[in-house]
Design a protein around this nucleic acid. Structure first.
Lengths: 210, 210, 210, 210
DNA sequence: TATGAATGAGTATTCATTCAT
DNA sequence: GATGAATGAATACTCATTCAT
């Protein structure tokens, strides 16, 4: 939606050269995100991205140098948006559940792409892998104080934070990786996000408090 | 190791032509498992498998028809071995922890290949994906009565079995997918299996009973 | 000529697999030599070679791995033939003029390709450059004793052999590089070889003996 | 060096727009000469020339139309400078050796570029090839009277001028084409120019007179 | 005039698959 | 049944050239 309007804007509103360039860059990034979500990151050819973006094949390389560069840029771009969303929707002093809820909310908008990322990142070049690490650091950064507070308050079991965090991410990624199985026709997070959240909270909660 | 002993067994017992054929098939399967573990399933060419097996490139196709067929067969073959191992090492009436321990033990021998499987399965054709589902059903089959018993006994929280199972698998796969990070130089299961097991048990245990 | 007869032989006489392979290799080498002579070495695409040879594009790489490998193989193949020719046509104890004559004779058959080689070698990858060095060593090897004898006999001026040799090669290559200018419609060596030889001999000869 | 001083001269004298245009043209030509010397003529992209010149990629085409046009212009420009240098440094009535010495001196300043020219000219489009022919005519024009005089005086053997001239150019180009071999770390003309000159003179000299 | 973003044709290389031996 | 030579479709990347600003 926003993409189309952008395109219209672009063709109707004459812009400076550098703005045009930025716009083309955005178009390619957005197109790549769409095709990546649809077909998979590794399974997508640079030509397919160019076609989806409505630009020449060469333009992809003029902007991103290599396929790896493109992939890294798409992930980084996505990571920034995710981070922004996360910061906006996570109140200071929010509880563990609220932070995890924000996490799911942030992902939900781009569930398709995020699911591909969860699955394919281990197979991507290191530059791209690093980007995902940064994304997750961001989430951990929000989660950490919430967990500590809840642990101190006794509502959450004491346990090493990394293990707890990785359990959550593992659970989430596992369901996303098997979306077709767990939510054949709909958004996985839409249909089962709440359930996953409840389940995880019950796992980490101290027995009596829940 | 178990692979080599299998080869030796077969080659010391010369048999009819159809047995020879079976032997070639086994060699290709074993070779594929090795290269897949080393290089990745999707990153491995059929030619590389043939070379590792010491057979002609054509033989791979004579036996498995297509690359997809080969991959599916390798996974199926692996699934059968895993299932066997699981049945052997899991005593009747074992507790939840023991079953999960058996699970890790069964995987440990082929950690490299299993890790590839955990990562790449979502990207493989559906035939191969189905095979992994069957493998996991098998584990669930062993786990189910143990959990139910422990739940009845009150040592494990009551919760939907699939969620519990998927949390375990999600956790395990997440660590396997990031082996390089979590166990740079050693076997992940060797160095951190126990820790994962303890962590998971503490998650699903009722507070006082553990 | 020999090429065509070879092709005929190939298609009429069923051969063993390895002979077939050698035959394909030969076809590609011969085709490459022809196109290289016609279009230039660097200006020729691997696809053009494949088309000229009547094989698939992939075959070129099945046989020579890379374009560089192909070029190196073509030069090496040519060098061997040249060396053979040189050995055959150069009698033991031949004089300087006779050896140089043999040199020209050996080149004449493949003047087109040799001219390309003379021009493009400095621009080719080092492996290929080395091949040309070997070819010229071969000529120097024949020339050396002849010069020495003639120098001792007083019919050739005393001078450092490398300078003398490089003057000859420089002269020859310069004329070959400018064939279109010096022999627009015919073979340069055919039409002007004798002249070059006479000229060079007069340069290196002692005044009185000529 | 001489190139830089030229630029300075031009940039300190701001002039009309058409002078500005000339200035840009000169900058591109000088930059191209530098990159050509460094990387090779054929191996240099128009974008690399633009970058070296500090102008936009489009400017190259605004001034020279095509890549071929640029190359031809660079060579022509070089030829003019060489011709000028040659005229200045060659005294009327100079002997053969002096003229050849002037030739080497003229080239020495731009040895890198001239060596590329010697090697790559046969591979360049005809317009560029023609330029080199003109350059060499120029040298021949200076050499001709000197040779004739020396021949008449009996110090140089009688022989067709073109053959003599081409032997000289062939020798020179052969050494330049193999600079890496003959003068790995230094200027070829610096380290071996005298030697080549002596050798060539001894070749064309009558025995006793030298 | 100068710019530089965009183009698209061209190229080397890979690899699953086929099939004659 | 096994072989391995041959195939050809697919794909990332380069670069001269154009043209709107």
């Amino acid at each position: 939606m926003s993409i189309e309007s952008t395109i219209i804007t672009k063709s109707t509103t004459p812009q400076s050269r550098s703005a045009q360039k930025l716009e083309t860059r955005r178009r390619i990034l957005a197109a790549a995100r769409r095709v990546f979500a649809r077909e998979g990151i590794l399974a997508t050819s640079t030509a397919a991205v160019a076609a989806e973006a409505g630009v020449s094949h060469g333009s992809v390389f003029a902007h991103f140098g290599t396929q790896e560069g493109l992939i890294a840029a798409v992930i980084e771009d996505f990571g920034e948006a995710l981070s922004l969303h996360l910061h906006e929707s996570t109140e200071r002093g929010a509880g563990t559940r609220e932070v995890l809820k924000s996490h799911l909310d942030a992902i939900r908008e781009s569930e398709g792409f995020y699911a591909r990322l969860a699955v394919e990142t281990p197979l991507l070049p290191s530059e791209a892998r690093l980007s995902l690490v940064l994304i997750q650091s961001d989430i951990a950064f929000h989660l950490s104080p919430a967990i500590e507070a809840d642990a101190k308050a006794g509502s959450v079991k004491a346990m090493p934070l990394p293990l707890l965090f990785n359990t959550w991410v593992g659970l989430l990624h596992y369901y996303l990786a098997n979306r077709e199985l767990f939510a054949p026709d709909a958004s996985l997070l839409e249909s089962r996000g709440e359930e996953l959240l409840d389940h995880f909270m019950s796992l980490i909660s101290t027995g009596g408090k829940r």
